[in-house]
Every structure is written in structure tokens, then in C-alpha cells.
Write a protein that binds this DNA or RNA. Structure first.
Lengths: 242, 242
DNA sequence: TTTTCACAAACAGTATACAGATCGTTGACA
DNA sequence: TGTCAACGATCTGTATACTGTTTGTGAAAA
């Protein structure tokens, strides 16, 4: 049997469901409830939840339960600020250190065209976007940097999966990706840094107008009541929210 | 009784012991062994170890045991590179966003003088240094950034606790801290960014010559055999190392 | 009717029992 | 004497039992 045969798949599945907003931000749940949903006993559920909390996808309220981390303007702002700090430097290092194979794959990822209005294509684009940024981070050869950039993007993807900001600006985003990858490919660190900075700044501008209006300021997205698996909500879960 | 009455103190104590190199880098151990050492049962031990692994202080080898994360040149290099990326930006944001109270505390922390050659004073200085950098990160008002800075410094402190790089250069370090805090206090973001960059660059130069020679290149520091608590080492722990 | 307080349900935190994996050992065989 | 496979000790991964906390509820008192 494979290594970590229960925790690892459980963790991945729950994380995916949170990232894709399949598990509603702000929703409260218990260990038993999550275990029922994913067919796992408490021990692996606990371990997966601990990991997810460390990544900022779940909140733990000691002795009181869990909740899918709510999305907030503050969170989004912090994440974009983090991108602006890390991504340009990552691009610069990538320009100096990426292998030819990595450059080749970057080109493939950057040229992914998605069909505006097509939901499936849009979701694929989100994944591709993540893979591209993760690959750039990977090719810095700095594991710490890779971890941080990866975590930032995982958190950001939840906002993207709300489905709002990309529909009109997708093509511009692709063009920026191509420019960025070209700069990295030509081993021009300075240019790569500039492209990345510009890319993030544009993304910030685009999202400022579109995404903000979709989030209740400083609060959870959507109604946070009701349980995850359709069972009758107990009295405690109804009162767990802030 | 307090919240998380077993895991939290256990986690803190083990983390402290790892950071202070009380638990030797590279040393192998089992859950039961750690539980014996810190008077805890397996469940809290496992949880604490999972957290510490996520922070990069422990390595988990599935089905084979645990080890205190070894120190390596690669790790140190990655950490300094990370500092060079975010500390200048953190300083710049701090210059714009720190509260007067935070500025006041920064000044106190920056002026901590330590007595060269005094081991106790030196260890206090390491703590003070951490607190200063954490406070600067905190005053960016970006929680994500604060978390990352904290983790990077926690990891770096293990190298500092080896006790090598500071003894001759301590005063220079203090002077740099003071300049940095002055720049932040005067709300000069550009100047703060420069001071921080310079500070990290100097630190990198200083450590390059001193610390490197103390680490077996790419390998664990010190002999990694033998157990933690003086019990007779079992046959497995002797063969667990790479 | 409103307030208070004790009780009970539900839950997280912890301890422990159980199952399955790993690896050193040992003994048979070449 | 050297090699290899089966065994067993020991450990991690998982399930579950137990304990203590939190909080809603309802009865009793004001």
C-alpha cells in the first residue's frame, strides 16, 4: 500500500475542494462531519485540517470547531502585496537559473489560450496559471521561495475560482505571461523582473475593480450557515460564526 | 485549564530546543522517544512534529521515523536569499505603516548592546535580533508577510545558535540596526529599503567567511547518531540517516 | 415574563489499542 | 564462509475509547 495512504489523498482532496470553493468559504464544520464526507476517521481528518490551517485554508477554533477560511478584502490585499514582493525576484532568479527543459515548459504553459465564457476552459486556465507561476518559482532553485510562492497562489486561486475577474481580461493576462517567459528565456533578469512587476501591477488593477465588489467587505463570502453533508445542522454549528 | 494544554507547550518547548540546537541537527528519534523526553503521549507528539516539519525544523521519513532537520549550506543560502527579497520591502512598508508605539519599541530593540564573549548576552542578542525583525514585519500590517519573515528567522536562528558569526561583528550589526530603525522612524521608505538591503548584504558577507567553515558541506552538523534521552539506541535509529 | 443556573448534548483534545510497514537478525543453504 | 530469505522486534499510521470543555436548554427563582 502507498505511503500515507489515508492522510495524503484526504488532504489533497479537501484542499482542492476548498481552493475550488466547492467547500464554501466561512462554512463551519466538525471533524466528524468532514470524516463522514470524505470517508475517513478522526485522526487523518485532524491531521489534514492542521495542515490546511497552517496554509491558511481552514480556521481552527479550539474546542469549538473548524471553518473553511473566509475570503476577505484584507486577505486578497495581503496576497497581492506578497506577490509584488516575491514574484519579480523569483522571475529574475529564474532567468538566471532555469534549465532549458523548464524554459520549454514555461513556453507551453504561457501560450495556453482559453475560450472566453467557457467555464471548463476558464478553470483549466486557472490551473495552468498556477503551474506557470509555480514552475517559475521552482526554477529559482530556492525551496523556501518555491514554498512561499506556491502557498500565495493556492490562496489566490480561491478568489479566482469565484469566477469573476478573468472573463474580460484573459487575453491581456496571456500576453503578459508570454512577455514574461520570453524575458526569462532570454536570460535577462532585469527585464524579467520588470515584466513580473508589471504583470502583478496590472493584475492588481484589474482585480481592484472587479473582484472587490464580489466580496462582502471584511466578511465571509456567501452564507456560512448549514452543514456540509446535508445532515440536520446541530445547534452548535449555527452559532459558531463570528 | 488552558487551551491546547498539551500540544501547545510541547510544540513551543521542542521548537525552542531545536532552535537553540539543544536537539542536535540531524539526530534521529521516534515518537515514543520524544514523548518520553517531554512527558507526552503519542498524539500530541505527532501533532507537534507535524507542525515542526511544516516549519522545516523536523524531517519525517514515512514509516521510518523522524529527525531534527540537518543544517546545510544550501538551507542557509536559501534563507539569506529570502531575506534579501523581503526584508527591504518589509522595511519600506514598515516605514509607511508602523505605529508610534512600534517605532518606539524598535528603537529599544535596536539599541540592545551585547558584551562580546559573554555567552548569555550573546544568546539574548539573538532573541532581540529576532524580535526586532519580527516587529518590523508586524508593522507592515501584512499577516502573510509577518508569517514568512517569522519562519525564515526561526530557521536562521539555528545557525546563529551555533555561536560562530557574531562574536567579532556584533557591534557592526548593532550599528546597522540603528540606522535601519532611524530610516523607518523618519518614514523614509526608500532609505529604509536601502538600509535593509545593505544590512542583509553585510550579514551575508560576514557569515560567508565564518559560518560556512563550520558546516559540513550539504550535510548534517555534528554526529547524528545516538538517541536523545540516553536510552540504549535501538538498531533502527542507527540506520536511519542518509 | 425575565433571569439565572445546573444539566446535557456535542464536540475537540488526548490516550491507547490495533494493523501494517520497515529493517536488522538469524539460520539454512550454497 | 558468504548469500539470501523468512522471521520478529519496533516503529509509524490509523481507529477508537476516554476525558474535559463549551454552549444551548429548560426548570426554578425573582
Amino acid at each position: 500500500m502507498a505511503i500515507e495512504s489515508v492522510v495524503e489523498p484526504l488532504y489533497r482532496k479537501v484542499r482542492q475542494d476548498i481552493v475550488e470553493c466547492e467547500l464554501t468559504p466561512g462554512r463551519a464544520f466538525s471533524e466528524a462531519e468532514l470524516g463522514r464526507l470524505y470517508n475517513a476517521s478522526r485522526t487523518p481528518v485532524r491531521e489534514a485540517c492542521r495542515r490546511l490551517e497552517h496554509e491558511g485554508l481552514i480556521r481552527i477554533m479550539p474546542f469549538r470547531g473548524y471553518m473553511i477560511a473566509p475570503l476577505s478584502v484584507a486577505e486578497f490585499h495581503d496576497l497581492e502585496e506578497m506577490q509584488l514582493i516575491f514574484e519579480p525576484e523569483a522571475a529574475a532568479f529564474a532567468a538566471e537559473r532555469a534549465t532549458p527543459e523548464e524554459l520549454e515548459e514555461m513556453r507551453t504553459l504561457a501560450t495556453y489560450e482559453y475560450r472566453v465564457g467557457d467555464r471548463t476552459s476558464y478553470r483549466e486556465f486557472i490551473q495552468t496559471n498556477y503551474q506557470l507561476h509555480a514552475l517559475i518559482a521552482q526554477s529559482t532553485r530556492n525551496k523556501r521561495l518555491f514554498d512561499v510562492v506556491g502557498n500565495i497562489h493556492i490562496r489566490l486561486m480561491r478568489f479566482f475560482y469565484l469566477g469573476l475577474p478573468f472573463d474580460s481580461y484573459g487575453p491581456a493576462l496571456v500576453a503578459e505571461h508570454i512577455r514574461l517567459v520570453e524575458a526569462i528565456s532570454s536570460r535577462n533578469a532585469t527585464e524579467a523582473r520588470c515584466c513580473a512587476t508589471e504583470h502583478i501591477r496590472m493584475a492588481m488593477e484589474r482585480s481592484a475593480s472587479l473582484l472587490m465588489s464580489a466580496i462582502r467587505f471584511g466578511e465571509a463570502v456567501f452564507d456560512a450557515n448549514s452543514t456540509l453533508d446535508g445532515t440536520i445542522p446541530n445547534t452548535r454549528s449555527r452559532t459558531r460564526l463570528p
